[in-house]
């Protein structure tokens, strides 16, 4: 196996194994709430975002 093939396989493994595991650990694709500071009042604001599959902070019923 050539060096280039090895590098390509490692990049492939990185893309197909490391990235999904990292994304799972980071909760990527799930609903989330992040904080932002209001520049005028200085208050903390909570910003919600929906996940990739339904649900979410403001989905309601």
């Amino acid at each position: 196996m050539s060096k280039l093939t090895m590098i390509l396989i490692l990049i492939f493994c990185g893309a197909v194994v490391i990235l999904p595991l990292w994304a799972s650990w980071k909760g990527i694709g799930e609903s989330s709430v992040t904080t932002e500071k209001d520049k005028t009042t200085g208050r903390i604001l909570y910003v919600g975002s929906r996940g990739w599959v339904g649900g979410g902070p403001s989905s309601g019923k």
Binding site: L19, P20, L21, S24, K26, G27, E30, W52
Partner: peptide, 10 residues
């Protein structure tokens, strides 16, 4: 908690 979606997609 682990998000399953990225792993399922992979």
């Amino acid at each position: 908690v682990v998000s399953t979606l990225p792993i399922i997609v992979a």
